[in-house]
Design a protein around this nucleic acid. Structure first.
Lengths: 346, 346
DNA sequence: GTTAGCACTCACAAGGTAAGAGTGCTAACA
DNA sequence: TGTTAGCACTCTTACCTTGTGAGTGCTAAC
């Protein structure tokens, strides 16, 4: 069931036109703009394409609209890779690195840049840190009954919590506890650390043990959980108001309600596989995303930790352009995070 | 120009009805529901109220709508304080403290609870920390050429940055530097700390000085700036879709564009004075907020640091209920932050 | 296989009409 | 003098009708 060359061209033309205008496209329009034959000829071809499932018909007397199957074909086979020009790349890089001081910041910024360029809703998910390993643990006295529990991970991430103690603790006790913890936990991944029976692994005098069990261990666990948490950044939500498909207030509402359930969104997006993934309309398992397309791609930190970046938009989307930008951005993120890592070594 | 009792009652009735329904209210409706006289009488009174500027008339044959002047009168003089029932209070407190592990978290949660109860868009701004003082500063070696710069503030806030060093530094050097910094900065407010000529205040050997100047000082300044930063949390944005006044896609768009400019929003809201402030429609200096009402109130951390909490909604708002909830929440926040503080002392 | 021609379909905008809600005014009433 | 009933008038809204334009599908000719 291969399509003839002309059918392919017509399909491509319909997709191009529809993506641009969001209006069903008629045979005359194609005929005028593409030299593919007379309106009648094109009508016949379109009719065939419809029978094959690539086009649909909102109603008898309207033009044709590409189906999801058409977009899928387009994405898989017809979409030329849109190489970004050097200026575009430079502009993106300039935007991306401007005003950025740290890790999370850069990720957030990537979402922003992506949404600005594509005029779509963009998101970025910070890396899942299950594979990150604890490097060392410290307990720092603030005042008599407050200490700061500090965890340092191999990725460079640092986290502290102020811990309130039942009883004053000597610096010695704290030092011993910290040493003990570092000994037990360093080299373990964050997730492994959470599975260890934290009390049993310890050997210290009764008082230190009691303090550890009641004051420090709970904070330790909570901090580990916090470090494992991934963040979701979204940007360009208001872009959807410019899309004709969301001119309906109900649609807009549904969309905003969807994206404001950040936990859900994150879970859905983050469970996707690695690499660039494009899901079109009904291919999204999610009912609520059934007339959206979602593009995600992964970036890497230190070759291990994996974060995500992507856009959510209407199925009518400039797949070529968007994927190029997403790719360029994830490449840049991976590079940036490799550099900081490398920095530490030499 | 005091209003007669009946005029006041009619005005109150109009406001109550309009707040509930968002429809202009006619004389018959009032007459039926409130025993304030026949429709004709009420019409005469309404006509007077309109002349006095408390009511307006979308068009000749429609009911009356309260003016901003009416809401102002209502808020100033007629609005009974809606005491929350004990159950409501308990429910709010339960919601507020559930799932909360720390400072920022609690603030974010407050915005969430507020928006859920009021069905409006709520926001919370974390305290400005200009008045917070540095308590001590530490430099912790991670590996040969990475140290963690740790700032502890009196409020209990802790901040770290990983700092990369040009050359390896001995633990001794770090200890001296940290001690020196603590000596120079502890007791200073964060903003004061930023004004000090950081290099001049130092006395150490040339190598330590160089390291301080080139590696640590820049991070120190950036971290101070970070700590000074306030965060804005918004919640319940999608509630505006339920309001008839935002059934217009353009209005909704404008609103979302406004609130997505977080920096602007924060500046506008945060510059407001202390205590509970209600601005109605055009009272907002901001053109874009001219058909909204904004309620803000302040909460305190340790009696010094001041954060804000509030809602943005249509001028047609249940001022009584909303202010009660806002007040109860800010009281709770202040109490919570006093407790943690007090905790440290005894 | 391609194209011109024509009847037909459907969405959409413009105009017209009727219903309903509400006012303003006048005159009668207590 | 304040209150009320009655009535004409206004304006919005929903609904229907109609005309137009874009587009298809089919047939017949090239």
């Amino acid at each position: 069931m291969d399509l003839t060359e002309r059918k392919l061209k017509i399909l491509q033309a319909v997709i191009a036109d529809f993506v641009r205008t969001a209006e069903p496209v008629g045979s005359r329009t194609i005929s005028k703009n593409y030299e593919l034959g007379s309106p009648a000829t094109i009508r016949n071809e379109m009719s065939d394409l419809e029978e094959l499932g690539y086009l649909t018909h909102p109603h008898t007397s309207s033009g044709r609209v590409p189906s999801e199957k058409a977009y899928r074909l387009y994405v898989n086979e017809m979409m030329g890779k849109t190489e970004l020009t050097q200026e575009q790349k430079d502009a993106i890089a300039r935007d991306l690195y401007s005003n950025v001081t740290e890790f999370e910041n850069l990720i957030e910024r990537a979402a922003h840049v992506l949404s600005e360029i594509t005029n779509l809703t963009a998101f970025a998910i910070s890396p899942g840190k299950e594979q990150d390993k604890l490097k060392y643990i410290n307990l720092l006295p603030v005042d008599e009954r407050t200490v700061i529990l500090m965890l340092v991970a191999e990725s460079g991430e640092v986290s502290n919590t102020a811990v309130h103690l039942d009883k004053p603790a000597s610096e010695d006790t704290l030092r011993i506890l910290a040493k003990n913890m570092t000994y037990n936990y360093s080299g373990k991944t964050l997730s492994e650390a959470l599975t260890i029976d934290i009390i049993k692994t310890f050997k210290a005098d009764a008082e230190a043990m009691a303090m550890f069990e009641h004051n420090i261990a709970p904070s330790f666990i909570r901090t580990l959980e916090d470090m494992l948490n991934v963040n979701l950044y979204m940007d360009g939500l208001t872009h959807i108001f410019s899309l004709p498909e969301y001119n309906d207030i109900e649609k807009a509402k549904t969309f905003f309600e969807l994206v404001s359930r950040k936990q859900d969104i994150m879970q859905k997006l983050n469970s996707r596989e690695d690499g660039m993934i494009i899901t079109i309309g009904g291919e999204n398992e999610d009912e609520e995303l059934s007339d959206c397309s979602v593009i995600t791609a992964t970036y890497h930190v230190d070759g291990r930790l994996v974060g995500k970046l992507g856009v959510i938009g209407p199925t009518r989307m400039k797949y070529g352009e968007v994927t190029s930008v997403v790719e360029y951005l994830t490449d840049n993120l991976s590079k940036a995070f490799r550099l900081t890592e490398g920095d530490n070594d030499d």
